[in-house]
C-alpha cells in the first residue's frame, strides 16, 4: 500500500516512466483476468490501455488522491467496468436508445460512443472557436469548476462564463447535427 501510494504520487508529478512501470507490472495478470470473460484479445489489449490511462487521468484531475485499496484492486475495478461495458453487464440507464453505464463503486458514468459518433464530435469540437474549445476542455476534461475556469480565463463574472459555455454547447450541437446531413 505504501509503495502503491508512492507510485500514485509519482504519477501526480506526471512521471510517465512510472506509468510505464504500472502498465508492465499488472499487464499479464490483467490479461489473465480479462480472459475469463468472452472478449477478444484485441479488445483486452485496448481495455487494458484505457484502464491505465484512466488511472493516470483520475490522478491528474484529482479524482484519485489517496488510495483506499491497493493499486491493483483499483486498476482491476476500472478494468472490470470497461469489460462489463463491452458485455453490457453494467448497471445502465437508458436514454433514447442509448445507454449510460454506471459504476457505483467508481462513481462513474459513461456513454457508449461508437467510433463514427466519436469522430464527428471530435471534428465538431475542433471547428469551435478557441475560446469555446478551452472552456469545454477545462470543464469536461480537466475537471475544473466554473469558478476555477473564470479565474483561469479571466472572465469578469461567473454568469458571463456560464452563458458563454451554453453558447459553445449549442454551437457544438449544431455542428454535430450538420455533419449528419
Amino acid at each position: 500500500m505504501i509503495k502503491d501510494q508512492y507510485v500514485v504520487d509519482k504519477l501526480k508529478q506526471n512521471d510517465l516512466k512510472a506509468l510505464d512501470e504500472v502498465y508492465l507490472t499488472y499487464k499479464k495478470e490483467f490479461i489473465l483476468f480479462a480472459r475469463t470473460f468472452s472478449i477478444s484479445e484485441d479488445a483486452i489489449a485496448d481495455v487494458y490501455q484505457e484502464t491505465i490511462i484512466s488511472l493516470y487521468e483520475n490522478i491528474q484531475n484529482k479524482k484519485l488522491e489517496h488510495l483506499t485499496s491497493t493499486l491493483k484492486t483499483y486498476l482491476f475495478a476500472i478494468g472490470k467496468f470497461k469489460i462489463y461495458k463491452q458485455l453490457n453487464k453494467n448497471k445502465r440507464l437508458h436514454h433514447e436508445g442509448n445507454s449510460i453505464h454506471i459504476s457505483e463503486e467508481m462513481q462513474l458514468f459513461e456513454t457508449e460512443v461508437n467510433d463514427e459518433r466519436q469522430r464527428k464530435l471530435q471534428t465538431a469540437l475542433k471547428q469551435l472557436g478557441s475560446k469555446c474549445q478551452k472552456i469545454l476542455e477545462l470543464y469536461y476534461y480537466n475537471g475544473m469548476t466554473l469558478d476555477e475556469i473564470r479565474t483561469e480565463l479571466d472572465y469578469t463574472s461567473k454568469d458571463v462564463l456560464k452563458s458563454q459555455k451554453s453558447r459553445c454547447l449549442k454551437q457544438l450541437k449544431e455542428l454535430v447535427k450538420k455533419s449528419y446531413e
Binding site: 510505464d20 502498465y23 458514468f109 459518433r117 471530435q122 469540437l125 469536461y140 476534461y141 457544438l172
Partner: peptide
Amino acid sequence: FYDALEIQQALAGEKHRPLKERL
C-alpha cells in the same frame, strides 16, 4: 447529462491518443 458525457469522452479520446501510442 448524456450530451455532456459524450463531450467528455470525445475530448478524452483525443487526449488519450499520445498516451495510448506510448503504451
